[in-house]
Simulated scan of single mutants.
Amino acid sequence: MALVPFAVPIVAALAAALLCVALRPLLQRYALARPNARSSHKVPTPQGGGIAVLAGAFLAVALALRLSPLEGEAGRSLLVVAGGACALALVGAWDDIRPLPAGLRLVLQAACVGFVLIRAAPELRLFPEALPLAVERALALLAGVWFVNLVNFMDGLDWITVAGIVPLAAALALAGMAGVVDPATGWLAAGLCGGLLGFAPFNRPVAKLFLGDVGSLPIGLLSAYLLYRLAGTGAFAAALILPLYHVADATITLFRRLARGEKVWQAHRSHFYQQATGNGFSVRAVVGRVAALNVVLAALAGLAIAWTSLWAQAGCLALAVLLTGLLLRAFATPRASHG
């Protein structure tokens, strides 16, 4: 059915919004996020909106599969990814209610990522001629676990996960419609995009509802899987460009904290987007700039796919790195110094 790709994000958004309304009183009672050293909020706020995002996304994809069944292993792969994401959501919910030891949390995350990697994409290779299968799988597992955590680390400001993941998911949904990635990947991306859009009104500054780890962890897994699928088509540069702001902010911050000898698993406020709110940027100014950059990154990723020349792809990646670096520098600089 030709209308399925357009219907998926709409259904996901409506379902997620309705679930946010229905769940919020329960979350207000049992799942309050209280301010800590990492928080940008000042009053206890219900968390768990990620439940609505995931449910909306998976409901929309399930309806799409019902209306237009996919051939081969595509449908089974979607079930595996949904299962891995739901298992990771349970880990996140547990951590939201009663924080887990860092080591146990990491092991459970690795188990969920590994399950999806082996069961949903067993045939996918990025560098078959350069790396042995075991080495590539180990690197993919490491990258997947890091992506799960960096999305969680970056979910510390109202709307920032929406600003970071919606453009990425929308770009991948369009890639599915264009035939760059398979339809199953495109539908999953469209569902994730719609689910986050349905959640967005409840998370706008000042937020009435947070994703919680129950949402940020599986959203990180779904995003990593979608990017892995994109990279598997040969569009490796595009897969690097799309999440570049989130990856750069989280990774640079991690290495800075390691260099200072800090305990990197403890709450903090040293991400660039967090520095920005202390340097005179409003929350809306921060997320607006992040969203605008991510739209530009999505456009550059599209150009990197369209232009098959390695030099053109390298140019798109270099420009993406430059623009991301400029925004990080702006966030780290007090507004008064801009004049």
Results as ranks from 00 to 15, higher is better:
residue 300 L to I: 00
residue 289 R to E: 12
residue 298 A to P: 03
residue 280 G to F: 06
residue 309 S to Y: 06
residue 260 R to H: 12
residue 264 V to P: 07
residue 268 H to C: 09
residue 256 R to Y: 07
residue 282 S to E: 10
residue 292 A to H: 08
residue 303 L to H: 04
residue 282 S to M: 09
residue 270 S to A: 12
residue 296 V to T: 14
residue 265 W to G: 09
residue 297 L to P: 00
residue 304 A to W: 08
residue 295 V to P: 05
residue 297 L to W: 07
residue 256 R to Q: 14
residue 287 V to Y: 00
residue 275 Q to P: 06
residue 255 F to K: 00
residue 306 A to K: 10
residue 299 A to R: 10
residue 271 H to E: 03
residue 275 Q to N: 11
residue 297 L to Q: 09
residue 306 A to L: 15
residue 315 G to Q: 02
residue 292 A to D: 08
residue 258 L to E: 02
residue 289 R to V: 03
residue 313 Q to V: 07
residue 300 L to R: 00
residue 282 S to W: 07
residue 280 G to H: 07
residue 262 E to H: 06
residue 311 W to R: 13
residue 268 H to E: 04
residue 266 Q to G: 05
residue 308 T to E: 11
residue 290 V to S: 02
residue 266 Q to Y: 11
residue 304 A to N: 11
residue 256 R to F: 08
residue 309 S to Q: 04
residue 287 V to D: 01
residue 267 A to F: 08
residue 259 A to L: 11
residue 307 W to F: 14
residue 302 G to N: 06
residue 315 G to S: 06
residue 301 A to Q: 01
residue 277 T to F: 08
residue 306 A to R: 14
residue 309 S to D: 12
residue 303 L to D: 05
residue 254 L to Q: 03
residue 272 F to S: 15
residue 272 F to P: 00
residue 293 L to P: 03
residue 297 L to S: 09
residue 277 T to E: 14
residue 306 A to G: 15
residue 269 R to V: 08
residue 273 Y to V: 03
residue 255 F to L: 10
residue 257 R to M: 05
residue 254 L to N: 02
residue 256 R to N: 09
residue 278 G to E: 11
residue 257 R to T: 04
residue 315 G to H: 01
residue 275 Q to L: 14
residue 259 A to F: 10
residue 262 E to D: 14
residue 311 W to H: 09
residue 267 A to L: 04
residue 278 G to L: 10
residue 305 I to E: 01
residue 300 L to Q: 01
residue 293 L to E: 12
residue 274 Q to G: 03
residue 255 F to P: 00
residue 298 A to H: 06
residue 263 K to H: 12
